[in-house]
Design a protein around this nucleic acid. Structure first.
Lengths: 219, 219
DNA sequence: TGTACATCAGTGAACGCGCGTTCACTGATGTAC
DNA sequence: TGTACATCAGTGAACGCGCGTTCACTGATGTAC
C-alpha cells in the first residue's frame, strides 16, 4: 500500500538489521579471521540474544556465503564502473588494488585459502565471471582484434581449443591469454603484498605491479 | 652411552611420536582446514588422551608454528636440491608446482590467507628467505651479469635504492626484478589454480605458467 | 646382578568456555473488516 | 475509528558438543651405585 515501488517498513527494517549483522561479521573477520566468526558474538555486539539472528540468517554458513556474495558483487561493480568510465588496463589494476587494500580480508575471502568442502552456489560463480568479462573487454580493446604481428604461442594455440568458458565473448585467443596474464600477475603481486610476504623488502609493490602489467602478452 | 652420535631410545621415541602427531595434524588440515585442527581430535585418532599431547607440544599454536616451519623447510630444501642438481628456472617452477600440488594445504599454510595477529618467529622468516636466495641465484645465472642491452625500467631503478633485503647477494637490480617476477607470476597462477579459480575454464594451468615464465624481465 | 632412585609418558577427572542451534514463549507491529 | 486477528522480531532456557588447558596421579623406563 504505502510506497508501491519500495519496501514495507518491516522489509526496510529487516534489510537494515541484516546489513548491520554483516557489518559486525566483517569486523570480526578483520579482527580474528573467518574461523572466529560467531553468530553469538555478533548478537552480543548488537545487544541482542543469539537466537535472534536466526530471524535473519538461517545459519552461520548462510551468513558467510552472503559475505562472499557481497564481496564478489562489490568487486564486479567496482571493475565494471571503472571500465565503463574509460579506465584502461593500468587504471583497472589500480582500482582493483585499491579495492583489495581497503579491505584485505574481503579480498582473501574471495581469493585466499579455500575452505575445504565449501562450494559456492552458482549465482556466485556467475558474479565472479562478470569480473572476467570486464577483463576480456578491456584486453580486447587494447589489441584491436587484428594483431597478426604478435607470434602465436603454444598457449594461444591451446586456448583456441579450450575457450568454451569465454562463451559469448568475441575474444581472440590472444585476448584470452592477455586477460589471464593480467589476472594472474595482478593476483600474484597483490596477494603476496597483502599477506605481508614483502615485509622486510623495502620496494614498492605498486611499481612492481605496474611493471608486470607493462609487458602483457600481445597488448 | 649407546650410539654416541645419535639419540637415546627415549629421544627417538619422542621424535617418532611428534612426527605422528604432525602427520595427523596435516590430515585434519586437509580434511577441514586449519581452523578445525584440534589437539583433542588428534589424540583421539592416535588412541591416547588429550592431555598426553602436551608432552610433545606446549600448545596448539606451537604445533601450528611447527607445521609452518616444516612446510617452509620442505620447500626450501626442495628448491635448493633441484637448483644444485642443475635445474633452470623452468625446471624450478615445475618442481615448486609439483611440491604445491602434492599438498595444496601445505602451500596455502605458507602462502594463503594470513592469520590475523599471527607473527612467524624469526627462524621461519629466515627459512623463507632461503627460498628467495635460490631464486636469486637461478635468475642471476641466466643473465650473466652483463646484460647492458636490456632497458632499465623504472622499477629496476627503484630496486637499486631498495635492495637491502638482498643483502649479501651479489645480484644486479635486474636480477632482483627477475626473481620477483618469477615468484609473483608463479604464485599468481599456482594459487589461483590450487584454489580452484580455474575450474570451469578448460585450459591447462601448466601451459599458462610456462608461458608466463617465458617472458621474465631481462632473462 | 640387584637394588634405590629419578625421569618421564600417559591417564582421568575437572575447569570454564563459547559454540550452533531448537523451542516455546512474549509482546509489539501491521492488516482486515 | 475501533476491534479481532495474523504476522513476526526478539527472549530466555536448554540441548549437546568439543575445545584448550591444568592438575595430581600411576606405572613403566632408564640411570647410578
Amino acid at each position: 500500500m504505502t510506497d508501491p515501488g519500495g519496501q514495507s517498513p518491516r522489509e526496510r527494517y529487516r534489510a537494515q538489521v541484516r546489513a548491520e549483522i554483516k557489518q559486525h561479521a566483517w569486523g570480526q573477520i578483520a579482527t580474528a579471521g573467518v574461523p572466529a566468526l560467531s553468530l553469538n558474538a555478533i548478537a552480543k555486539q548488537m545487544g541482542m540474544s543469539g537466537p535472534a539472528l536466526y530471524r535473519y540468517f538461517a545459519s552461520r554458513d548462510e551468513l558467510i556465503t552472503e559475505l562472499i556474495r557481497d564481496a564478489y558483487r562489490s568487486l564486479a561493480d567496482t571493475v565494471r564502473t571503472a571500465f565503463d568510465s574509460g579506465a584502461d588496463l593500468y587504471a583497472l589494476a589500480g582500482v582493483i588494488r585499491e579495492w583489495a587494500r581497503s579491505d584485505p580480508h574481503r579480498y582473501f575471502l574471495i581469493y585466499g585459502t579455500p575452505v575445504p568442502g565449501y562450494h559456492a552456489p552458482d549465482d556466485i560463480t556467475a558474479i565472479s565471471s562478470e569480473v572476467m568479462a570486464v577483463l576480456l573487454e578491456a584486453c580486447g580493446a587494447v589489441s584491436p582484434d587484428s594483431s597478426v604481428d604478435s607470434p602465436v604461442t603454444p598457449f594461444d594455440a591451446h586456448l583456441e581449443n579450450h575457450r568454451e568458458w569465454a562463451d559469448g565473448h568475441p575474444a581472440t585467443a590472444a585476448t584470452l591469454h592477455s586477460a589471464l596474464s593480467f589476472w594472474t600477475r595482478l593476483h600474484g603481486v597483490l596477494s603476496l603484498e597483502l599477506a605481508g610476504h614483502f615485509t622486510g623488502m623495502a620496494f614498492d609493490p605498486e611499481l612492481l605491479m605496474t611493471e608486470e602489467l607493462k609487458n602483457l602478452p600481445s597488448s
